[in-house]
Design a protein around this nucleic acid. Structure first.
Length: 329
DNA sequence: AATTTGCGCAACCGCGCTCGG
DNA sequence: TCCGAGCGCGGTTGCGCAAAT
């Protein structure tokens, strides 16, 4: 990446156009027409490359530009044309008088794409997102309740509130690789609440497709109960909240507190479901560190994904001996 | 009131094509 | 046939503003 070669060589201006530059270009082209763009720049007295002048004229100064928001008819036409032409914006623009390819491209990327996804349509293929599911899948999934917990570029975490659902149920509804699974439990009673699973979409499958596959299985709740966000810095001991959703046991018996959208989560080691109570987290300033006052053992380090910064985070598992747990009741 | 976040849009960038010397 | 300049296109970036926190 760097300055466009022609601009660099000739020390030409870049960036936003000033009203004076616009006036010069408009005045020149109105009088003489554009002809060769590289000479337009010189003859109009502009410190710009021809390419920049051409773009400014086509996308902004041209007198036949329509401007203003797209109407519904235009939007429908864009969708229709895109289904046949794909991302050939200039060809699409040729069918919409007064609109530029750039304008249509921006409108597509910022608005139409979103609308199509909301309607369960893949904006690339113009086909339903859940095309991999069969009628049987949808029928069988009717009784399941899903709630998306958090998604990132290639990973989807979904929580089921249906107690009776089994991990194998979820795997059956996705034609992707076997998702990794863990159970969630009520922190007070220890009774199962459901399962969490994360599925990693293969490269051939977009996140939208994956999300769409799940969203068509059942209706998502309009609001997802928020997990409490852990404080950024913890100096003293804290109590595990009593809300069942805050405590999630994992397959290896460890438990974690916090949700995947928090900057970090706490994984405090083996948790005895019968022994709810207070623990002393050893998290400080978003990083794990060992609190010397606590008699904890360090386990194997592992890696998680920080959904805020979109980068991997290294974690350390801490195993607390029994005295670290104080009964709530 | 200050800061952060999200979004829309203008402009840039690199690639590929065309055309003339 | 080759080469370079110019042009057109689609993808991407980054600025500025408004909304949210």
């Amino acid at each position: 990446m760097g300055r466009h070669s022609c601009c660099y060589k000739q020390r030409l201006r870049k960036g936003l156009w000033s009203p004076e530059e616009d006036a010069k270009l408009l005045s020149y082209i109105t009088k003489y027409g554009h002809g060769c763009w590289s000479s337009v720049a010189k003859l109009a007295g502009l410190q710009r490359c021809g390419k920049s002048c051409r773009l400014r004229w086509i996308n902004y100064l041209r007198p036949d530009l329509k401007r203003g928001p797209f109407c519904q008819q235009e939007e429908d036409l864009i969708v229709e044309l895109h289904s046949g032409l794909g991302n050939r914006w200039s060809q699409i623009a040729a069918r919409l008088p007064g609109r530029t390819d750039n304008e249509i491209k921006n409108f597509w990327n910022s608005c139409i794409k979103k609308k199509l996804r909301q309607r369960g349509i893949d904006p690339t293929t113009h086909k339903p997102l859940a095309k991999t599911l069969t009628e049987n899948d949808n029928e069988a999934a009717k009784n399941l309740q899903f709630a998306p917990v958090k998604s990132n570029e290639d990973k989807l975490l979904v929580q089921s509130h249906e107690v009776s659902s089994k991990p194998s149920d979820f795997a059956g509804y996705l034609s992707f690789q076997q998702p990794s699974l863990s159970a969630s439990h009520d922190s007070c009673t220890g009774s199962p609440l459901g399962f969490n699973f994360s599925a990693i979409a293969p490269s051939s499958c977009s996140l939208e497709t994956l999300t769409g596959s799940i969203s068509t299985l059942t209706t998502f709740p309009s609001t997802i109960p928020a997990f409490p966000t852990p404080p950024a810095q913890v100096n003293s001991s804290i109590s595990l909240p009593s809300e069942s959703s805050c405590l999630t046991s994992t397959s290896n018996g460890a438990f974690s507190y916090g949700d995947s959208s928090a900057p970090f989560s706490w994984d405090c080691g083996n948790f005895d479901r019968q022994r709810q109570g207070q623990v002393h987290p050893v998290v400080e300033d978003s990083k794990w560190s060992e609190n010397p006052q606590l008699p904890c053992l360090t386990g194997s380090p592992f890696q998680a994904f920080n959904d805020i910064k979109h980068e991997p985070v290294n974690f350390q598992t801490f195993e607390f001996p029994q005295p670290c747990f104080q009964h709530m009741q």
